[in-house]
Design a protein around this nucleic acid. Structure first.
Lengths: 218, 218
DNA sequence: CGCAACCTTACGCGAACCTTACGGGGTACA
DNA sequence: TGTACCCCGTAAGGTTCGCGTAAGGTTGCG
Protein backbone atom coordinates (compact mmCIF):
# COMPACT_ATOMS: atom_id res chain seq x y z
CA UNK A 1 0.00 0.00 0.00
CA UNK A 2 1.26 3.49 -0.77
CA UNK A 3 1.29 5.67 2.31
CA UNK A 4 1.98 9.38 2.45
CA UNK A 5 3.51 10.46 5.74
CA UNK A 6 3.59 14.17 6.52
CA UNK A 7 5.52 14.76 9.72
CA UNK A 8 8.39 17.05 10.58
CA UNK A 9 9.74 15.25 13.62
CA UNK A 10 12.28 12.79 12.38
CA UNK A 11 12.31 11.01 15.72
CA UNK A 12 8.68 10.07 15.21
CA UNK A 13 8.71 9.54 11.49
CA UNK A 14 11.79 7.34 11.29
CA UNK A 15 10.57 4.41 13.35
CA UNK A 16 7.14 4.69 11.82
CA UNK A 17 8.53 4.43 8.32
CA UNK A 18 10.58 1.40 9.30
CA UNK A 19 7.64 -0.25 10.94
CA UNK A 20 5.33 0.25 8.01
CA UNK A 21 8.00 -0.75 5.54
CA UNK A 22 8.43 -3.99 7.43
CA UNK A 23 4.78 -4.54 6.72
CA UNK A 24 5.52 -4.23 3.03
CA UNK A 25 4.07 -0.78 2.62
CA UNK A 26 5.65 1.84 0.43
CA UNK A 27 5.95 4.91 2.60
CA UNK A 28 6.85 8.31 1.27
CA UNK A 29 7.79 10.71 3.98
CA UNK A 30 7.80 14.50 3.67
CA UNK A 31 8.34 17.11 6.32
CA UNK A 32 6.69 20.00 4.54
CA UNK A 33 3.22 20.46 3.15
CA UNK A 34 4.56 21.80 -0.12
CA UNK A 35 6.53 18.67 -0.92
CA UNK A 36 3.71 16.44 0.21
CA UNK A 37 1.21 18.23 -1.93
CA UNK A 38 3.22 17.91 -5.12
CA UNK A 39 3.78 14.24 -4.41
CA UNK A 40 0.08 13.74 -3.85
CA UNK A 41 -0.79 15.49 -7.07
CA UNK A 42 1.71 13.37 -8.96
CA UNK A 43 0.06 10.11 -8.06
CA UNK A 44 -2.55 9.12 -5.51
CA UNK A 45 -1.91 7.36 -2.22
CA UNK A 46 -3.95 4.82 -0.34
CA UNK A 47 -3.68 6.57 3.02
CA UNK A 48 -2.34 9.86 4.27
CA UNK A 49 -0.85 10.26 7.74
CA UNK A 50 -0.98 13.92 8.58
CA UNK A 51 0.69 15.86 11.34
CA UNK A 52 -1.10 19.15 11.88
CA UNK A 53 1.79 21.24 13.08
CA UNK A 54 4.23 21.74 10.25
CA UNK A 55 6.93 24.28 9.44
CA UNK A 56 5.29 25.62 6.30
CA UNK A 57 1.65 25.78 7.22
CA UNK A 58 -1.36 24.25 8.89
CA UNK A 59 -2.15 20.59 8.23
CA UNK A 60 -5.85 21.34 8.42
CA UNK A 61 -5.52 23.65 5.44
CA UNK A 62 -3.91 20.85 3.52
CA UNK A 63 -6.75 18.53 4.45
CA UNK A 64 -9.32 21.09 3.41
CA UNK A 65 -7.73 21.72 0.03
CA UNK A 66 -7.52 17.99 -0.48
CA UNK A 67 -11.22 17.52 0.08
CA UNK A 68 -11.99 20.57 -2.03
CA UNK A 69 -10.20 18.87 -4.86
CA UNK A 70 -12.50 15.87 -4.35
CA UNK A 71 -9.69 13.67 -3.17
CA UNK A 72 -11.20 11.16 -0.79
CA UNK A 73 -8.08 9.36 0.29
CA UNK A 74 -8.43 8.30 3.92
CA UNK A 75 -6.62 10.72 6.20
CA UNK A 76 -5.32 9.79 9.60
CA UNK A 77 -4.36 12.71 11.79
CA UNK A 78 -1.35 12.56 14.10
CA UNK A 79 -2.01 14.85 17.01
CA UNK A 80 -0.81 15.68 20.49
CA UNK A 81 -2.95 14.67 23.41
CA UNK A 82 -3.89 18.21 24.38
CA UNK A 83 -4.97 19.47 20.97
CA UNK A 84 -8.61 18.50 21.30
CA UNK A 85 -9.96 21.31 19.17
CA UNK A 86 -7.66 20.36 16.32
CA UNK A 87 -9.07 16.88 16.42
CA UNK A 88 -12.60 18.17 16.21
CA UNK A 89 -11.77 20.43 13.31
CA UNK A 90 -10.01 17.59 11.57
CA UNK A 91 -12.95 15.26 11.85
CA UNK A 92 -15.24 18.00 10.60
CA UNK A 93 -13.01 18.62 7.62
CA UNK A 94 -13.22 15.00 6.61
CA UNK A 95 -10.41 13.24 8.42
CA UNK A 96 -11.17 9.60 8.97
CA UNK A 97 -9.47 8.99 12.28
CA UNK A 98 -6.66 10.22 14.42
CA UNK A 99 -3.88 8.87 16.59
CA UNK A 100 -2.59 10.56 19.68
CA UNK A 101 1.12 11.21 19.97
CA UNK A 102 3.26 9.60 21.14
CA UNK A 103 1.64 6.72 19.38
CA UNK A 104 2.08 3.01 19.54
CA UNK A 105 3.38 1.74 16.22
CA UNK A 106 1.07 -1.23 16.16
CA UNK A 107 -1.87 0.99 16.89
CA UNK A 108 -1.11 3.18 13.93
CA UNK A 109 -0.94 0.06 11.82
CA UNK A 110 -4.30 -1.09 13.10
CA UNK A 111 -5.91 2.29 12.46
CA UNK A 112 -4.55 2.44 8.95
CA UNK A 113 -5.98 -0.95 8.43
CA UNK A 114 -9.49 -0.18 9.62
CA UNK A 115 -9.59 3.20 7.93
CA UNK A 116 -8.70 1.64 4.62
CA UNK A 117 -11.21 -1.09 4.99
CA UNK A 118 -14.18 1.20 5.44
CA UNK A 119 -14.53 1.86 1.75
CA UNK A 120 -13.42 -1.48 0.55
CA UNK A 121 -15.32 -3.89 2.74
CA UNK A 122 -14.38 -7.34 1.73
CA UNK A 123 -10.89 -6.57 0.58
CA UNK A 124 -9.45 -7.05 4.03
CA UNK A 125 -10.70 -10.58 4.12
CA UNK A 126 -8.90 -13.41 2.51
CA UNK A 127 -9.14 -13.51 -1.24
CA UNK A 128 -9.34 -17.01 -2.65
CA UNK A 129 -8.60 -17.70 -6.28
CA UNK A 130 -8.23 -21.25 -7.43
CA UNK A 131 -5.89 -23.07 -5.10
CA UNK A 132 -4.40 -19.98 -3.58
CA UNK A 133 -5.50 -17.63 -0.87
CA UNK A 134 -4.21 -14.13 -0.41
CA UNK A 135 -4.47 -12.28 2.86
CA UNK A 136 -4.08 -8.55 2.59
CA UNK A 137 -4.16 -8.34 6.35
CA UNK A 138 -0.98 -10.20 7.13
CA UNK A 139 0.65 -10.02 3.73
CA UNK A 140 0.78 -13.71 3.16
CA UNK A 141 0.01 -15.97 0.27
CA UNK A 142 -0.79 -19.66 0.47
CA UNK A 143 -0.88 -21.98 -2.50
CA UNK A 144 -2.51 -25.32 -1.85
CA UNK A 145 -1.93 -24.72 1.87
CA UNK A 146 1.78 -24.12 1.58
CA UNK A 147 3.01 -20.61 2.16
CA UNK A 148 4.57 -18.84 -0.79
CA UNK A 149 7.40 -16.42 -0.18
CA UNK A 150 7.12 -13.27 -2.23
CA UNK A 151 9.63 -10.48 -2.45
CA UNK A 152 8.64 -6.94 -1.63
CA UNK A 153 8.15 -5.93 -5.24
CA UNK A 154 6.19 -9.01 -6.09
CA UNK A 155 3.90 -8.44 -3.16
CA UNK A 156 3.29 -4.83 -4.11
CA UNK A 157 2.22 -5.84 -7.59
CA UNK A 158 -0.06 -8.56 -6.32
CA UNK A 159 -1.56 -6.33 -3.68
CA UNK A 160 -2.61 -3.61 -6.06
CA UNK A 161 -4.13 -6.14 -8.40
CA UNK A 162 -6.14 -7.68 -5.55
CA UNK A 163 -7.29 -4.31 -4.30
CA UNK A 164 -8.62 -3.32 -7.71
CA UNK A 165 -10.03 -6.69 -8.60
CA UNK A 166 -11.63 -7.36 -10.99
CA UNK A 167 -10.66 -4.16 -12.77
CA UNK A 168 -7.92 -3.98 -15.36
CA UNK A 169 -5.02 -2.05 -13.86
CA UNK A 170 -2.90 -0.05 -16.30
CA UNK A 171 0.82 -0.59 -16.10
CA UNK A 172 1.32 3.02 -15.16
CA UNK A 173 -0.71 2.48 -12.00
CA UNK A 174 1.28 -0.60 -11.13
CA UNK A 175 4.53 1.20 -11.65
CA UNK A 176 3.30 4.06 -9.49
CA UNK A 177 2.60 1.53 -6.77
CA UNK A 178 6.14 0.18 -7.01
CA UNK A 179 8.29 3.21 -7.36
CA UNK A 180 8.36 6.33 -5.28
CA UNK A 181 8.40 9.71 -6.88
CA UNK A 182 11.77 10.29 -8.52
CA UNK A 183 12.93 6.70 -8.62
CA UNK A 184 11.09 5.58 -11.69
CA UNK A 185 12.57 2.89 -13.83
CA UNK A 186 13.09 2.70 -17.55
CA UNK A 187 12.85 -0.88 -18.59
CA UNK A 188 10.44 -3.76 -18.47
CA UNK A 189 10.99 -4.34 -14.78
CA UNK A 190 7.27 -4.58 -14.22
CA UNK A 191 6.91 -7.28 -16.84
CA UNK A 192 9.70 -9.18 -15.18
CA UNK A 193 7.89 -9.06 -11.86
CA UNK A 194 4.66 -10.20 -13.44
CA UNK A 195 6.50 -13.06 -15.00
CA UNK A 196 8.10 -14.11 -11.73
CA UNK A 197 4.76 -13.82 -9.97
CA UNK A 198 3.21 -16.14 -12.52
CA UNK A 199 5.99 -18.61 -11.97
CA UNK A 200 5.24 -18.67 -8.25
CA UNK A 201 1.47 -18.42 -8.26
CA UNK A 202 0.38 -20.13 -11.46
CA UNK A 203 0.20 -18.97 -15.02
CA UNK A 204 -3.49 -18.16 -15.11
CA UNK A 205 -3.80 -15.88 -12.11
CA UNK A 206 -2.80 -12.67 -13.83
CA UNK A 207 -4.32 -12.05 -17.23
CA UNK A 208 -2.91 -9.58 -19.67
CA UNK A 209 -5.19 -7.13 -21.42
CA UNK A 210 -3.13 -6.07 -24.35
CA UNK A 211 -2.67 -2.31 -24.49
CA UNK A 212 -4.66 -1.83 -21.30
CA UNK A 213 -2.95 -3.48 -18.41
CA UNK A 214 -3.28 -6.46 -16.10
CA UNK A 215 -6.08 -7.94 -14.05
CA UNK A 216 -6.66 -10.86 -11.75
CA UNK A 217 -8.55 -13.76 -13.23
CA UNK A 218 -12.28 -13.23 -12.69
CA UNK B 1 -15.11 -12.99 25.23
CA UNK B 2 -17.88 -11.37 27.25
CA UNK B 3 -19.26 -8.29 25.59
CA UNK B 4 -21.71 -5.79 27.06
CA UNK B 5 -23.84 -4.09 24.43
CA UNK B 6 -25.83 -1.01 25.43
CA UNK B 7 -28.04 0.10 22.56
CA UNK B 8 -31.72 0.89 22.31
CA UNK B 9 -32.27 0.43 18.59
CA UNK B 10 -33.16 -3.18 18.07
CA UNK B 11 -32.57 -2.88 14.34
CA UNK B 12 -28.92 -2.17 15.02
CA UNK B 13 -28.39 -4.36 18.02
CA UNK B 14 -29.94 -7.53 16.64
CA UNK B 15 -27.61 -8.15 13.72
CA UNK B 16 -24.63 -7.06 15.80
CA UNK B 17 -25.44 -9.60 18.50
CA UNK B 18 -25.77 -12.33 15.94
CA UNK B 19 -22.58 -11.38 14.19
CA UNK B 20 -20.55 -11.34 17.38
CA UNK B 21 -22.13 -14.54 18.59
CA UNK B 22 -21.10 -16.18 15.35
CA UNK B 23 -17.59 -15.20 16.28
CA UNK B 24 -17.88 -17.13 19.55
CA UNK B 25 -18.39 -14.09 21.71
CA UNK B 26 -20.84 -13.99 24.57
CA UNK B 27 -22.93 -10.87 24.11
CA UNK B 28 -25.28 -9.41 26.68
CA UNK B 29 -27.54 -6.77 25.28
CA UNK B 30 -29.40 -4.13 27.29
CA UNK B 31 -31.38 -1.16 26.09
CA UNK B 32 -31.23 0.93 29.25
CA UNK B 33 -28.33 2.23 31.29
CA UNK B 34 -29.89 1.05 34.52
CA UNK B 35 -30.01 -2.58 33.44
CA UNK B 36 -26.55 -2.40 31.92
CA UNK B 37 -25.07 -0.92 35.06
CA UNK B 38 -26.41 -3.61 37.34
CA UNK B 39 -25.17 -6.26 34.93
CA UNK B 40 -21.76 -4.67 34.88
CA UNK B 41 -21.60 -4.52 38.64
CA UNK B 42 -22.61 -8.15 38.87
CA UNK B 43 -19.65 -9.41 36.87
CA UNK B 44 -17.05 -7.74 34.69
CA UNK B 45 -16.99 -7.77 30.91
CA UNK B 46 -14.12 -7.80 28.49
CA UNK B 47 -15.49 -4.99 26.32
CA UNK B 48 -18.36 -2.55 26.48
CA UNK B 49 -20.13 -1.26 23.38
CA UNK B 50 -21.88 1.93 24.31
CA UNK B 51 -24.50 3.94 22.51
CA UNK B 52 -24.60 7.48 23.84
CA UNK B 53 -28.24 8.29 23.22
CA UNK B 54 -30.39 6.18 25.49
CA UNK B 55 -33.91 6.45 26.89
CA UNK B 56 -32.90 6.67 30.54
CA UNK B 57 -29.86 8.91 30.43
CA UNK B 58 -26.63 9.94 28.81
CA UNK B 59 -24.12 7.29 27.86
CA UNK B 60 -21.29 9.64 28.69
CA UNK B 61 -22.48 9.78 32.28
CA UNK B 62 -22.36 6.03 32.40
CA UNK B 63 -18.85 6.05 31.06
CA UNK B 64 -17.75 8.65 33.56
CA UNK B 65 -19.19 6.76 36.52
CA UNK B 66 -17.51 3.63 35.24
CA UNK B 67 -14.11 5.25 35.18
CA UNK B 68 -14.77 6.91 38.53
CA UNK B 69 -15.28 3.44 39.93
CA UNK B 70 -11.85 2.53 38.53
CA UNK B 71 -13.32 0.13 36.03
CA UNK B 72 -10.94 0.08 33.08
CA UNK B 73 -12.85 -2.21 30.80
CA UNK B 74 -12.30 -1.09 27.20
CA UNK B 75 -15.24 0.98 25.98
CA UNK B 76 -16.19 1.35 22.35
CA UNK B 77 -18.61 4.15 21.58
CA UNK B 78 -21.33 3.76 18.96
CA UNK B 79 -22.08 7.18 17.55
CA UNK B 80 -23.80 8.90 14.67
CA UNK B 81 -21.70 10.52 11.99
CA UNK B 82 -22.68 14.03 12.92
CA UNK B 83 -22.13 13.80 16.65
CA UNK B 84 -18.49 14.75 16.53
CA UNK B 85 -18.39 16.54 19.85
CA UNK B 86 -19.83 13.49 21.59
CA UNK B 87 -17.01 11.43 20.19
CA UNK B 88 -14.43 13.82 21.51
CA UNK B 89 -16.04 13.97 24.92
CA UNK B 90 -16.17 10.22 25.01
CA UNK B 91 -12.51 9.84 24.21
CA UNK B 92 -11.66 12.40 26.83
CA UNK B 93 -13.69 10.54 29.41
CA UNK B 94 -11.70 7.42 28.77
CA UNK B 95 -13.38 5.64 25.90
CA UNK B 96 -10.97 3.57 23.88
CA UNK B 97 -12.41 3.96 20.40
CA UNK B 98 -15.59 4.65 18.53
CA UNK B 99 -17.54 3.36 15.57
CA UNK B 100 -19.70 5.49 13.37
CA UNK B 101 -23.29 4.44 12.78
CA UNK B 102 -24.45 2.86 10.63
CA UNK B 103 -21.50 0.61 11.18
CA UNK B 104 -20.04 -2.23 9.27
CA UNK B 105 -20.29 -5.38 11.36
CA UNK B 106 -16.81 -6.51 10.46
CA UNK B 107 -15.43 -3.16 11.43
CA UNK B 108 -16.94 -3.38 14.88
CA UNK B 109 -15.38 -6.79 15.21
CA UNK B 110 -12.01 -5.46 14.18
CA UNK B 111 -12.18 -2.56 16.60
CA UNK B 112 -13.14 -4.83 19.46
CA UNK B 113 -10.20 -6.94 18.60
CA UNK B 114 -7.64 -4.17 18.57
CA UNK B 115 -9.04 -2.52 21.67
CA UNK B 116 -8.82 -5.76 23.61
CA UNK B 117 -5.40 -6.58 22.44
CA UNK B 118 -3.92 -3.46 23.94
CA UNK B 119 -3.91 -4.66 27.50
CA UNK B 120 -3.55 -8.32 26.84
CA UNK B 121 -1.01 -10.15 28.87
CA UNK B 122 0.75 -12.84 26.99
CA UNK B 123 3.54 -13.20 29.50
CA UNK B 124 2.28 -16.37 31.05
CA UNK B 125 2.25 -18.50 27.98
CA UNK B 126 4.87 -20.84 26.65
CA UNK B 127 5.65 -20.67 22.97
CA UNK B 128 6.48 -23.94 21.28
CA UNK B 129 8.20 -24.01 17.92
CA UNK B 130 9.49 -27.25 16.54
CA UNK B 131 11.50 -29.01 19.21
CA UNK B 132 11.97 -25.99 21.41
CA UNK B 133 9.79 -24.25 23.93
CA UNK B 134 10.24 -20.69 25.06
CA UNK B 135 8.84 -19.35 28.31
CA UNK B 136 8.59 -15.60 28.49
CA UNK B 137 7.65 -15.82 32.13
CA UNK B 138 10.84 -17.34 33.48
CA UNK B 139 13.15 -16.44 30.61
CA UNK B 140 14.06 -19.98 29.78
CA UNK B 141 14.46 -21.95 26.59
CA UNK B 142 14.39 -25.71 26.22
CA UNK B 143 15.48 -27.55 23.13
CA UNK B 144 14.40 -31.15 22.94
CA UNK B 145 13.92 -31.09 26.71
CA UNK B 146 17.40 -29.88 27.50
CA UNK B 147 17.80 -26.31 28.71
CA UNK B 148 19.65 -23.89 26.48
CA UNK B 149 21.81 -21.19 27.98
CA UNK B 150 21.29 -17.83 26.33
CA UNK B 151 23.17 -14.67 27.10
CA UNK B 152 21.32 -11.50 28.02
CA UNK B 153 21.52 -10.01 24.55
CA UNK B 154 20.50 -13.21 22.86
CA UNK B 155 17.49 -13.49 25.10
CA UNK B 156 16.42 -9.93 24.40
CA UNK B 157 16.47 -10.57 20.68
CA UNK B 158 14.53 -13.79 21.01
CA UNK B 159 12.01 -12.26 23.37
CA UNK B 160 11.05 -9.42 21.10
CA UNK B 161 10.71 -11.80 18.21
CA UNK B 162 8.40 -14.02 20.25
CA UNK B 163 6.33 -11.09 21.45
CA UNK B 164 5.70 -9.91 17.91
CA UNK B 165 5.26 -13.31 16.35
CA UNK B 166 4.48 -13.89 13.54
CA UNK B 167 5.17 -10.35 12.38
CA UNK B 168 8.37 -9.29 10.69
CA UNK B 169 10.33 -7.16 13.12
CA UNK B 170 12.55 -4.49 11.60
CA UNK B 171 16.14 -4.45 12.73
CA UNK B 172 15.65 -0.98 14.14
CA UNK B 173 13.01 -2.31 16.50
CA UNK B 174 15.29 -5.08 17.61
CA UNK B 175 18.14 -2.69 18.18
CA UNK B 176 15.82 -0.43 20.12
CA UNK B 177 15.00 -3.38 22.33
CA UNK B 178 18.69 -4.02 22.97
CA UNK B 179 20.17 -0.62 23.42
CA UNK B 180 18.98 2.28 25.49
CA UNK B 181 18.86 5.75 24.08
CA UNK B 182 22.38 7.12 23.76
CA UNK B 183 24.14 3.79 23.80
CA UNK B 184 23.38 2.79 20.25
CA UNK B 185 25.82 0.66 18.44
CA UNK B 186 27.35 1.15 15.04
CA UNK B 187 28.18 -2.24 13.69
CA UNK B 188 26.53 -5.47 12.85
CA UNK B 189 26.21 -6.52 16.46
CA UNK B 190 22.61 -7.51 15.90
CA UNK B 191 23.55 -9.77 13.04
CA UNK B 192 26.15 -11.37 15.21
CA UNK B 193 23.56 -12.12 17.88
CA UNK B 194 21.18 -13.53 15.33
CA UNK B 195 23.92 -15.75 14.06
CA UNK B 196 24.81 -17.00 17.53
CA UNK B 197 21.13 -17.56 18.31
CA UNK B 198 20.79 -19.66 15.21
CA UNK B 199 23.77 -21.72 16.22
CA UNK B 200 22.13 -22.48 19.56
CA UNK B 201 18.50 -22.85 18.54
CA UNK B 202 18.63 -24.20 15.03
CA UNK B 203 19.10 -22.53 11.71
CA UNK B 204 15.46 -22.37 10.71
CA UNK B 205 13.93 -20.69 13.73
CA UNK B 206 14.65 -17.15 12.70
CA UNK B 207 13.93 -16.32 9.10
CA UNK B 208 15.37 -13.29 7.40
CA UNK B 209 13.14 -11.05 5.35
CA UNK B 210 15.64 -9.21 3.28
CA UNK B 211 15.31 -5.46 3.59
CA UNK B 212 12.51 -5.79 6.14
CA UNK B 213 13.75 -7.53 9.23
CA UNK B 214 13.48 -10.85 11.01
CA UNK B 215 10.61 -13.08 12.05
CA UNK B 216 10.10 -16.36 13.81
CA UNK B 217 9.32 -19.30 11.61
CA UNK B 218 5.57 -19.41 10.89
C1' DC C 1 3.35 -10.19 -43.39
C1' DG C 2 4.87 -6.65 -40.25
C1' DC C 3 4.94 -4.35 -36.28
C1' DA C 4 4.08 -3.54 -31.60
C1' DA C 5 3.11 -5.29 -27.24
C1' DC C 6 4.27 -8.63 -24.26
C1' DC C 7 6.84 -12.91 -22.20
C1' DT C 8 10.75 -15.31 -20.55
C1' DT C 9 15.27 -15.99 -19.17
C1' DA C 10 20.00 -15.23 -17.98
C1' DC C 11 23.21 -12.06 -16.31
C1' DG C 12 25.47 -9.05 -13.18
C1' DC C 13 25.71 -5.52 -9.84
C1' DG C 14 25.28 -4.00 -5.39
C1' DA C 15 23.31 -4.10 -1.15
C1' DA C 16 22.01 -6.85 2.61
C1' DC C 17 23.27 -10.40 5.21
C1' DC C 18 26.22 -14.35 7.46
C1' DT C 19 30.09 -16.14 9.73
C1' DT C 20 34.06 -16.08 12.28
C1' DA C 21 38.05 -14.56 14.75
C1' DC C 22 39.89 -11.11 17.67
C1' DG C 23 40.30 -8.32 21.65
C1' DG C 24 38.64 -5.20 25.22
C1' DG C 25 36.38 -5.03 29.45
C1' DG C 26 33.85 -6.83 33.07
C1' DT C 27 33.40 -10.35 36.82
C1' DA C 28 34.71 -14.04 39.95
C1' DC C 29 37.72 -16.20 42.77
C1' DA C 30 42.00 -16.97 44.84
C1' DT D 1 46.80 -8.15 42.35
C1' DG D 2 46.66 -11.78 39.24
C1' DT D 3 44.42 -15.07 36.42
C1' DA D 4 40.88 -17.35 34.13
C1' DC D 5 36.62 -16.88 32.04
C1' DC D 6 33.06 -15.16 29.16
C1' DC D 7 30.00 -11.73 27.16
C1' DC D 8 29.79 -8.84 23.44
C1' DG D 9 31.03 -5.21 20.05
C1' DT D 10 33.97 -4.82 16.05
C1' DA D 11 35.67 -5.70 11.58
C1' DA D 12 36.88 -8.35 7.67
C1' DG D 13 35.78 -11.49 4.10
C1' DG D 14 32.56 -14.38 2.04
C1' DT D 15 27.85 -15.40 0.55
C1' DT D 16 23.23 -14.78 -0.83
C1' DC D 17 19.61 -12.67 -3.13
C1' DG D 18 16.50 -9.09 -4.92
C1' DC D 19 16.04 -6.59 -8.83
C1' DG D 20 16.83 -3.88 -12.95
C1' DT D 21 18.55 -4.70 -17.51
C1' DA D 22 18.57 -6.42 -22.00
C1' DA D 23 18.36 -9.87 -25.51
C1' DG D 24 15.64 -13.04 -28.01
C1' DG D 25 11.27 -15.39 -28.41
C1' DT D 26 6.07 -15.32 -28.68
C1' DT D 27 1.59 -13.53 -29.34
C1' DG D 28 -1.89 -10.99 -31.56
C1' DC D 29 -3.91 -7.49 -34.31
C1' DG D 30 -4.38 -4.84 -38.68
Amino acid sequence: MRILLIEDEAALAGPLVEHLAADRHLVEWFDTLADAESAERASPFDVILLDLHLPDGDGLEFLKSLRDRRVHTPVLILTARDKVSDRIKGLNLGADDYVIKPFDLDEVKARIHTVCRRGEDKLAQITAIGDLSISLADHSVMRADVPVRLTTREWQVLETLVRRKPAVVPRESLEAALYAFGEEVESNALEAHISRLRAKLGKDLIVTHRGLGYALCP
